[in-house]
Design a protein around this nucleic acid. Structure first.
Lengths: 261, 261
DNA sequence: TCACATTTGTCCGTATGTATC
DNA sequence: AGATACATACGGACAAATGTG
């Protein structure tokens, strides 16, 4: 065997909290610790690992930020194993956007290609339950629009539901990251549109909501009819319109991201 | 304005370390703290924020895991602002794979669609420098194969370079996450193949490397010739082969992920 | 409603290891 | 080699929150 192909492990003087978080992480990956399980109290963990409580706490912060655990205060509280880490990835992704490594242009261009691919898989793999939740989403959106209520959450949710229908968890995570970023940029527009002193803008916002609803309705129909080319065309046109709507705000400085921990 | 459209901030008794990490994060996003800058020592930060060192340390762990800072110990050490957080996303993503939320099947299926889209953009946007680094990658791979050295790093790098050529940072991050996962599953095959007691497997591995190199060479040629349909066909066939190579190991239990902090 | 126990959140003092000069 | 600066780590103490009897 050639010597060069041996991989040496970098010598990294492990810090105590790293060792602790890795050991707990390993237990979670191995399934020893399952979602819903509660970790022992910090003081007890400190005794078991034979380290100070400070190291335990830093390890818990890592697990918490990784999306593996959640922390509750008070009696019967503690660190609880969570069951999903997808929104954690979305948050980190939003951070990347803020560091201006990703422009709105790049974001929306990529979104079109990815959601087109996702839609193809959704048409292939969607089951009854998926169709039902998509229909529910549409009717929820309708109600909100009729009541003049902002429907941005439902609009975002539609895309996430389509990703779920693809039965591919990778797509679910990627689309969630995309929509989380889109949602943030949208929310920078939203509050202004609802300014009661500016009826024109508010009406404009309602019009756009109806437009979006119309596209979503047609896309769902195409999914049900398994009309792949039609669906792909629809989502491309739809996302191109969203893209243009967002690009107006591309050069505006954006605020800091949401809290994650 | 409809009452329902008001967004209430969830009352979450902010913990001190959250406040600290958010404030520092904000400074980084705003560009006040730039890559390479050093944060004040922990004791000084504690004084400035008027909190204990423990809270500062937990905040620093959060920033470190988020990929925003790196920590050096010893004299002249401290927390330094980093310039990229992409590999952090890749690591978190690998965690998601380990939680078996994502199967190799899902991973590779998604990879094919995404890399096809990326390739289209790469053909459109690749400049001289991109072509050059891809050519360099090919020649590096050739040399390693001729010297019977494992070329998995170069093979992975090829795909990352194509993503970079697309000039879309979102694609760069997603492809890096994908290849990081693929690389991990590959490395579970690698060590066995290099077992000096198993020449057959080793030769098989060399054959596969040559096959991969051949595909990469053809894909690069198609990029240069701006032959979009040809390139897309090539990468689809190539990734399908990789997919089948990986699927053999799909049912094997995999080991725990790499350390991130 | 009112304690009470549990557990996280926080601060402080001190000691040690490590890298730089 | 020694001094300095810094992260790392431990232990003790108290405050705050939360569920239970």
């Amino acid at each position: 065997m050639p010597l060069d192909s041996i991989q040496f492990n970098p010598i990294k003087s492990k810090r105590a909290f790293e060792e602790v978080s890795n050991q707990i992480k390993k237990l979670i990956f191995e399934g020893v610790l399952k979602p819903g399980d509660r970790l022992p109290p910090e003081t007890e963990l400190a005794q078991q690992f034979n380290v100070g409580r400070q190291s335990i706490r830093e390890a818990l912060r890592i697990l918490e930020l990784s999306g593996l655990t959640a922390t509750q205060k008070g009696g019967n509280g503690g660190s609880i194993i969570k069951d999903t880490i997808s929104n954690t990835i979305g948050s980190l992704f939003l951070d990347a956007c803020f560091l201006e490594k990703i422009s709105i242009e790049e974001l929306t261009v990529a979104r079109i290609d990815i959601e087109k691919a996702v839609l193809v898989h959704a048409i292939k793999n969607a089951d009854e339950a998926d169709i039902e939740s998509l229909q529910q989403n549409i009717s929820d959106t309708k109600q909100k629009i009729e009541a003049n209520i902002n429907s941005i959450d439902e609009n975002i949710q539609f895309h996430n539901l389509v990703a779920k229908a693809s039965k591919n968890q990778f797509f679910v995570i990627v689309v969630e990251a995309l929509t989380m970023a889109v949602r943030h940029f949208m929310s920078q527009i939203g509050p202004e549109s609802q300014d009661s002193n500016n009826h024109e803008r508010f009406n404009e916002s309602i019009l756009k909501s109806k437009n979006t609803l119309s596209y979503h309705t047609d896309i769902l129909a195409a999914i049900i009819a398994k009309n792949q080319p039609g669906a792909v065309d629809l989502i491309e046109t739809h996302l191109l319109e969203v893209k243009e709507r967002l690009e107006v705000f591309a050069d505006q400085p954006h605020t800091v991201g949401p809290d994650r921990v």
